[in-house]
């Protein structure tokens, strides 16, 4: 059988397709694989090929980045708690009530996701300085301000996930509870919240990751002594690239990966991210 022209273009197309697939996979995963590889070098810097391999760099993470990791964790945990405390009621409010301006309010509450982090960070810093001048309360460079800023970017995710977990929620159980004499607070506590449980757990994990990984807002709000992991890794990379920083990067990937695996058990990630 001779090779016709359509066969040939089909074959060429298939090879091109495979090439693009390979390039795409490499573009996403190659840097992560390389980082993992470098983190095990038994060298002070990139010497390729290395003389040997070691896991010792992982033990040295705490020495250089320990304080920053601790700050990042503190901010993330408090931001998660606050964003759940404010985001869950907002999610319930938006899904339950139909009022004029509901669409606009929902857009407004999710808007922190669409403003570039660099603008948000600069704006919050400038407001903090302005308030300091007016009131004398120190805000800039404090953990409080970082937490509040992180609340702004984690809360929309909580609202979004709560809204998603309530879209197919049957109001009849709530109505039944209310007609049996449960107060509105009781209905939320005993009926609505238990129904939202997977969504709430997912929201908490999501909020944690979003806070932990933030860089742009942190850039403006960190101060000497209060530096987040993302900022200190960026600063470190400005001077050297070595197996230690690769090990920190891998550790971060592992933490986020574990959180995502956990999250995947509660919500279908593909659905949530749309």
């Amino acid at each position: 059988m001779s090779l016709t022209e359509t066969d040939w273009t089909d074959w060429a197309g298939r090879v091109a397709l495979l090439g693009l697939l390979g390039l795409g996979i490499a573009a996403i995963f190659l840097p992560m694989v390389l980082t993992l590889y470098l983190s095990m070098f038994d060298e002070q810097m990139i010497v390729f090929p290395p003389h040997g391999y070691t896991l010792a760099w992982y033990g040295r993470i705490a020495g250089t980045f320990g304080a920053a990791i601790w700050t990042s964790l503190q901010i993330a945990v408090v931001a998660v708690a606050l964003s759940l405390a404010l985001g869950i009621p907002a999610g319930i409010g938006l899904s339950r009530h139909r009022f004029r301006g509901r669409e606009a309010l929902s857009t407004f509450l999710l808007s922190p996701l669409t403003v570039p982090g660099i603008a948000v960070g600069l704006a919050i810093y400038i407001l903090a300085i302005w308030l300091e001048e007016k009131s004398g309360v120190t805000l800039a460079g404090s953990l409080r301000l970082l937490i509040l800023a992180h609340l702004l970017i984690t809360m929309p995710w909580v609202i979004r996930l709560c809204l998603a977990s309530l879209t197919n929620h049957e109001r009849t159980t709530e109505e039944a509870a209310a007609s049996l004499g449960a107060s509105p607070m009781m209905v939320i506590w005993r009926v609505t919240l238990p129904a939202m449980r997977p969504g709430i757990i997912a929201a908490g994990l999501f909020a944690f990751i979003i806070s932990f990984e933030n860089l742009e807002i942190n850039l403006f709000l960190v101060a000497p002594g209060i530096t987040t992991l993302s900022v200190s890794v960026l600063q470190y990379l400005g001077y050297h690239i070595d197996p230690l920083v690769a090990a920190v990067a891998v550790a971060q990937m592992v933490i986020v990966g574990a959180a995502l695996l956990l999250l995947d058990r509660f919500v279908r990630l593909g659905q949530v991210l749309k």
């Binding site: 694989v33 920083v245 986020v256 990630l269």
Partner: peptide, 18 residues
């Protein structure tokens, strides 16, 4: 989905090595 939630700094480390 995993890379989406790993900060861009961390994901740039690999390219710097290369």
């Amino acid at each position: 989905i995993l890379p989406l939630f790993i900060g861009s700094t961390v994901r740039t480390v690999g390219w710097m090595i290369l």
